[in-house]
Design a protein around this nucleic acid. Structure first.
Length: 365
DNA sequence: ATGCATGAGAT
DNA sequence: TCTCATGCATA
């Protein structure tokens, strides 16, 4: 026995391995940077801020920028310390997260409709967002690190605040084998569904790939979805009922993100046709009063979500502004100072980077 | 609606 | 080890 839930919709294939970047607009990059919670400051400012560090502790709320940067500075020093401390072996790492105490199941989640393959096939040259990561902190004293202690960061006001909530759980995915290798260059969708490609033809300005279009569609989608009285979760599971090869169910999260445009551009492009297909089906069914497909789910064990306390989070954000891609060593050092598991810190950075790339109100409009 | 996490695939 | 697409859990 194993997971008894998860409907494992499809077996594999990315329904569409679209041209990751069709003939897309050169502006595609512009559109994805948006939604950056922490606007990059000038490194110089940061340096100056260091001086203010001490002061900033007093009015944490006031000079946000200053304290913010100060923290970044302090954290930046981490690597320095890290290097010097390597010599004396390190301490026992925290037992990595790993909460899946799951009952078994090799959790092979990823039942995504177009899993990565679709969009990943050929990466676009990652637009270079963060143009610069300065490392002006090189000369700082490692001591900074010491007072960068978690609680201190934010004026120790919040005590030790369990940074991490115990976790235990697992997710239940079925051992599906859904990895087809990348469809290298050959994007072929199962059959003709609304999965048209993003538009490769030179002469055809793929309207679907147009950020504007996506935005409009997302909004219409939501509107009509609500009109149908269907929840995001319903849509997600209903997708599995659509018999689109390579397309399985999606979570409420994903539907929500689609509607709010908080997905990568490619992801939006990939999902659009599928959601569009569902919408049409749903409206058709609605007209004939057949109402929705069913939704049900077997409950499974839960996992606890790690929660990074505000002070720690602030430090992380500060560091991220300076160095969004810290090395493994730096991550370890940061983790240690903030009293977080290294893995938690690593993932946090990954997620931050990903956030940066999400589309949202991009500059394209 | 979003934070933290997993995992396949690419580097 | 990173990126990306996604999901579970939770505010």
């Amino acid at each position: 026995m194993m997971s008894m839930n998860s409907k494992q919709p499809f077996t594999m294939h990315a329904a569409m391995a679209e041209p990751k970047y069709p003939t897309l607009h050169p502006s595609s990059e512009a559109m994805r940077r948006a939604c950056l919670p922490t606007p990059p400051r000038s490194p110089l400012t940061a340096m100056c801020a260091r001086t203010l560090c001490v002061l900033s502790q007093g009015n944490i709320f006031a000079g946000l920028d200053e304290s913010f940067l100060a923290r970044a500075e302090a954290l930046a020093a981490v690597d320095i310390v890290a290097q010097s401390k390597v010599h004396h072996s390190h301490h026992p790492f925290k037992p990595d997260a790993t909460y899946h105490t799951m009952n078994s199941v090799g959790c092979t989640s990823t039942a995504g409709p177009l899993s990565h393959h679709a969009a990943l096939t050929s990466h676009h040259p990652h637009v270079g967002h963060h143009p610069h990561h300065h490392q002006h902190h090189q000369g700082l004293d490692g001591d900074l690190l010491d007072h960068i202690s978690p609680n201190l960061t934010l004026a120790g006001l919040s005590g030790p605040e369990a940074s991490v909530v115990p976790t235990s759980a697992h997710h239940a995915h079925m051992p599906g084998m859904n990895h087809m290798h990348q469809a290298m260059g050959m994007h072929h969708h199962p059959h003709g569904l609304p999965l048209h490609h993003g538009g490769l033809m030179p002469g055809m300005p793929d309207t679907e790939a147009d950020p504007r279009e996506l935005e409009a569609f997302a909004e219409r989608f939501k509107q009509r979805r609500i009109k149908l009285g269907v929840t995001q979760a319903d849509v997600g599971s209903a997708l599995g009922n659509l018999k689109i090869p390579g397309v399985g169910s999606l979570s409420q999260s994903t539907i929500c993100r689609f509607e709010s445009l908080t997905l990568s551009h490619n992801n939006m492009i990939a999902l659009k046709p599928i959601l569009q297909a569902w919408l049409e089906e749903a409206e058709k069914a609605h007209r004939s009063k057949q109402s929705k497909p069913d939704l049900f789910n077997g409950g499974e064990k839960k996992r606890k979500r790690t929660s990074i306390a505000a002070p720690e989070k602030r430090s992380l954000e500060a560091y991220f502004a300076v160095q969004p891609r810290p090395s493994s060593e730096k991550i370890a050092a940061i983790a240690e100072k903030l009293d977080l598991k290294k893995n938690v810190v690593r993932v946090w950075f990954c997620n931050q980077r990903q956030k940066q790339k999400r589309m949202k109100f991009s500059a394209t409009h």
